[in-house]
Amino acid sequence: MIERLARFAASTAVVALVCGALAPARVSSASFATVDVAKAKAEGLVVFYTSVDVSVAERLARDFQAKYGIKVQVERTGSERVFQRIGQEYGSNLHVVDVVNTSDSANFLVWKSSGWLASVPLEDIARYWPPEFRDRDATFATWRATLSPIAYNASLVKPADAPKTWADLLAPQWKSKLVKAHPAYSGSEMTADYELMKAFGWGYLQKLGAQSVMQVQSSTEPPKVLSRGEQAVMAGGNEYVVFQLQAQGSPLALVYPREGTPFETSPAAVMKDAPHPNAARLFYQYMFSKDTQQMLVDFGGLRSVRVGLKEPANRVPITRIRLFHDDPAGVLKTSDEMKTKYAQYFGT
């Protein structure tokens, strides 16, 4: 209980930071990475492995190319497959990727300890990112964040009938009506399931598994499944695609359960052996710029941990949401057990 309270206190403190309640950190402008734009343009290409929704990734690539004339090759797939592929490629001494972003923060701990990440200290990150969202050695920082709330299709479920808590999802009326991303594919789902498991125990996932849940791979898909009307309620998936679809007129509604809502940070990093090192650094810098971060919020529906951004008025401010905070080291320790148990509970 004390631990949970402490975690809750920590997360609210974090959120206060996120929303600009505190002033930007004071930093000495000493040893920041200098980016050689001319060299970057000569390299002409950035290979970007990411798990962000493909529409956001391609928008980012377009914006960057429009500004610098450097092409971004987007390789969008689920976090766990990005992780698997980089492992496969680096295991074979194949250095294809320049910049990487996944929603499983634990990935970055592994890559960092393998010595695969470059240290790229950026002024923006030092100044505007709270310390818990950046690596001490500047090898990675939280590029984007999102929540995993409950969501439902309001044309299929009346607001009064909608589930209000995680425990509600276990009720018989939601059997065969739920959709959920899969932790073996999606990094944010891995994180979210870990947080739910920490809060409610394995028993929660086991009972959820007995609800004949429709499973999909990426955490970006459940909102799309709701939007089609294939399932009524999202039991695991991300908030940002719900925002995107709402903006397109889809009748989706969000529920932030009173027990708490999983919060996932999604770091980015430059690879030490990036084949286009200068273009990679320029792109990395651009990813953390104010404009890009605001684009992630406005267009992408994401949360940003950068201090001082504006959130659209129709979204519940993160300060008003009780969060389950993410714990990359814990996820890393539990991930294999999570995949095994999950396969037993959910069938795949």
Binding site: V54, R76, T77, R81, Y185, V216, S218, T220, E221, K224
Partner: peptide, 9 residues
């Protein structure tokens, strides 16, 4: 296959 993963039918 990648697009299917995120449901971009």
């Amino acid at each position: 296959y990648d697009l299917n993963e995120s449901g971009d039918t």
